[in-house]
């Protein structure tokens, strides 16, 4: 310990750097380290540390945490209460906040996931990406770690939404909660993978957010987060079926409605379910669509980042 303080002082004194160095060299032998060839275990370690970094940064970022807490309240209560005044006749006695709850949950998770993916663009701008790119690990490990990190952070948003469920009359049934949790986790991962894929190509923050806005806002409005996905004009129905977010909102809404005591008419009007050419798409398949998209985008993102330069 005393050697340390001496060295600290020596560095400050002009010209005595070398002398201080000699002292330290004599005192402590060099700790020998070496970098082993890569292995599966080492790649898992890399994935873990990239993931951990995102969490540490999130936990240290008070503003982001505050936004995570406030954002869903804003969406759910301001939007929900406001729209309720217009549409109480059309909701068959179901609280509009309950109806839009799944959609709001999805969009809140989506925004957070986008934001996490944007950190890759920051990392490039502030140079840190190069530190990871030149490390002796597969680029795929970095991309996977990044996607998992983003998904985890976005998940915290999902958990807050789940905690709020009671306030909008969604029951805290264990199975329901578990299923919603699983679905939003899937969505968080897919959206982060999407963002990372975009970030591989788009190198400026402003452009990134521009592209995101161009994609995310329409996705939100088209997805049926704010309206039932049946009886739409043809053009909107086609867009709705093409929107990946549809396949996250729909099964989640079905889950919520299956735990509500509502009339058959309300169910038919508000939770008609997504159909493909008249065929009702089962929830599991919808989840599969999200998962498949996520994996495909992850693969593209990995390929993009694996190119040299």
């Amino acid at each position: 310990m005393s050697a340390t303080t001496e060295r600290g002082a020596a560095v400050g004194a002009v010209g005595s750097v070398a002398a201080g160095a000699d002292g330290a060299a004599a005192a402590t032998p060099v700790i020998s380290v070496h970098v082993p060839p890569h292995s599966l275990a080492s790649e898992l370690r890399a994935i873990r540390i990239v993931w951990q970094r995102d969490l540490i940064r999130f936990v240290n970022d008070r503003i982001r945490i505050a936004a995570t807490l406030v954002q869903p309240l804003l969406f759910l209560f301001v939007l929900g209460s406001g729209l309720q005044r217009l549409s109480s006749a059309g909701t068959h006695g179901v609280n509009l906040k309950t109806f839009i709850y799944p959609g709001i949950l999805c969009i809140a998770v989506m925004f957070t996931a986008m934001f996490s993916a944007a950190s890759i663009v920051w990392d490039r701008e502030f140079g840190f990406l190069r530190e990871m790119m030149v490390a002796p690990v597969r680029r795929s490990s970095i991309v996977i770690g990044k996607c998992l990190g983003g998904a985890t952070v976005a998940c915290s948003q999902g958990i807050i939404m789940i905690l709020l469920a009671g306030l909008v009359h969604v029951p805290y049934a264990p199975l329901l909660i578990l299923a919603i949790f699983g679905l939003q986790l899937l969505l968080a991962f897919t959206i982060t993978a999407f963002g990372v894929m975009i970030a591989a190509r788009i190198k400026q923050m402003q452009a990134f957010f521009g592209v995101m806005q161009m994609i995310v806002m329409p996705m939100f409005f088209i997805s049926g987060a704010l309206f039932p996905a049946s009886g739409l004009p043809q053009w909107l129905e086609i867009l709705n079926r093409l929107d990946p977010l549809t396949y996250a909102v729909d099964p989640m809404r079905r889950l919520v409605f299956s735990h509500l005591h509502v009339s058959a008419a309300a169910r038919a009007a508000l939770d008609p379910g997504v159909t493909w050419w008249g065929w009702h798409v089962p929830g599991l398949l919808e989840a599969g669509v999200i998962a498949l998209l996520g994996l495909a985008m992850l693969a593209v993102a990995i390929a993009e980042f694996s190119r040299v330069e």
């Binding site: 970094r53 940064r57 970022d61 990392d123 502030f126 140079g127 840190f128 990406l129 190069r130 530190e131």
Partner: peptide
Amino acid sequence: DPTLDAYL
């Protein structure tokens, strides 16, 4: 150019 993570 610097490549540290300034938030860590």
